[in-house]
Design a binder for these strands. Structure first.
Lengths: 146, 146
DNA sequence: CTTGACCTTCCAACCGTGGGAAACCCTACA
DNA sequence: TGTAGGGTTTCCCACGGTTGGAAGGTCAAG
């Protein structure tokens, strides 16, 4: 199984497979005589594991821990659960932060009549530079734009 | 007012002020004879505007539009409102995505007894690679980890 | 005149992903 | 046997937004 087939089977792009190998998240793949990477079903399964973990928002750093637990047959499920709940915590913090932004923006949009005239409470708020009713104390940098 | 004072007064770090200038978000600042950047209250206000917009999650690209509207005295408040509501839409999409992750993780954590034994439905789910009950169809890359 | 706190520019890193170039490899088909 | 097309390899670059640091110039107080 070469990298393209492994990519298709796992849902992880070939680019990312090489990247994960380069950062040591997955072990160095075997090679054919001509230098092509070769993947076994076990390795494809590991890639699917990574893919699914990414889909659940885990950063690569945490996936490293998850993979270690996955490989460790003497693991304690409590450790896995802890990681999952930490992830929930982090996600919830970000959700709350974004919800505060949404609330502020919605409020501002509500009081903006949105017509042809230039008067706009949204711009007035931005200009004032003071936090609105639901705004954040300090920007934690958790929210990224796409 | 030099860059450090402008940073303190606006809440935007000196580093970021230089960055915003380099990407053309703000006009080139004036300079003293010795090359120090100089800022007027108007420019500090613009920086505060930017800071507040970032706090509300606007990407720099959108802030450019907001600043243009801010400067344009013949603007139509409808344009500002549209930008705000687009931002709300984007944020809500991300929130829903993250909420789906949270729901999945919470469910998995609920059915994991979290004790000293190795059996763990969380790892089993990750291994299966199939989307759980609340999972996302495709990862849109909207959610970043801190 | 020195000291420390500022400022300048430049370069690198973070995270995860995609794009692309230049070169090589493999298979199918003529 | 040649060739065309799809792989594959490594490499560097870009994104967004922010921070860090190094090397050097400047300002104000002592």
């Amino acid at each position: 199984m070469n990298i393209g087939e492994a990519a298709k089977a796992s849902g992880v792009s070939a680019k990312m497979i090489r990247y994960y190998e380069s950062i040591g998240l997955i072990p160095t793949a075997g090679r054919t005589g001509s230098g092509y990477r070769v993947y076994s079903p076990t390795e494809v399964q590991m890639l699917r594991f990574i893919r699914r973990s990414r889909d659940l928002g885990f950063p690569v750093e945490k996936i490293e821990e998850l993979l270690a637990l996955w490989r460790d047959r003497t693991r304690q499920s409590a450790d896995v659960k802890r990681l999952a709940l930490e992830q929930v915590d982090g996600l919830e913090r970000k959700v709350h932060e974004m919800q505060a932004m949404i609330d502020t923006l919605r409020h501002l949009a509500d009081v903006c009549c949105g017509d042809h005239r230039p008067d706009c409470p949204i711009l007035a708020d931005l200009e004032a530079g003071q936090s609105g009713p639901t705004a954040q104390r300090r920007p934690t940098g958790l929210v990224q734009q796409s």
